[in-house]
Design a protein around this nucleic acid. Sequence first.
DNA 1: CCTTGACCTTCCAGCCACGGGAACCCTTAT
DNA 2: ATAAGGGTTCCCGTGGCTGGAAGGTCAAGG
Lengths: 134, 134
Amino acid sequence: MNIGEVAQKSGLPAKTIRYYEGIGLIRPLRDTNGYRAFRDRDLHKLTFLARARALGFSMNDCRALLTLYEDTGRASAHVKEIAGAHLHRIDEKVAQLQSLRATLAHLVDACAGDDRPDCPILEDLGGTADQSAG
Amino acid sequence: MNIGEVAQKSGLPAKTIRYYEGIGLIRPLRDTNGYRAFRDRDLHKLTFLARARALGFSMNDCRALLTLYEDTGRASAHVKEIAGAHLHRIDEKVAQLQSLRATLAHLVDACAGDDRPDCPILEDLGGTADQSAG
DNA sequence: CCTTGACCTTCCAGCCACGGGAACCCTTAT
DNA sequence: ATAAGGGTTCCCGTGGCTGGAAGGTCAAGG
């Protein structure tokens, strides 16, 4: 398989596949003409990576997961630890975003949104209502 | 005021303040010795930027908001539009993260997390249970 | 044989919003 | 004179790609 076919099947752009080879995640063979020659195994790994990335795992996590994926003697605890840590980070991110959202929603709600200059949003960002820029 | 004092008062690292000057968000004066000389106005703008960034606004949004902040003849509708769009993006991001979270939580929950190799997480990422790498 | 066009190759630059660190200058205190 | 603690510019690195230039390869058509 050439890179185009693998790109289509894995859903990853060819550029990304080359990048993944560059950072050592896959090692496709080479044809005599210099073209990359992907085996099924490479395609599986790329598909794996595409899904892991879609779940938001970092490249570091992906690398670790891929190693575990290929190690049939792995302990599932190791996998679960990585995924659990990622889950935790997602929870933190969601909490942070929701906190932001609450503040922002409050401000947006308080803003008239008309042609007058008075704006609680800018007042809040500026610190106090008095120092309205200079 | 020198950059250190402004950094402390605004809560922004000196590096970030120099960067903001570099991209044209502030224009501090210069002392004869080459040091940046910040006025109150600069400090207000930096504080404004720090809060806007803390609310997750992009630098583009910050630039626009800062312009509005300094334009005493602005229409609050313009501010509200920017903030509303940002709120919308946050909502989208939260929804996406929660969707990810649900998938991931399901997988983590299904994984025994012991010393055996069987792992629903890897099986899901790999596509099917049969092609357990090669 | 030549061309066209789609495919492939490598390499370099850029993205965002900074952070680290080098190499150097200015000020103040001793 | 020196040391500490400011400040300055400049360049590189981050993550995870993406775009583009410049060129090699292959299959089809005239």
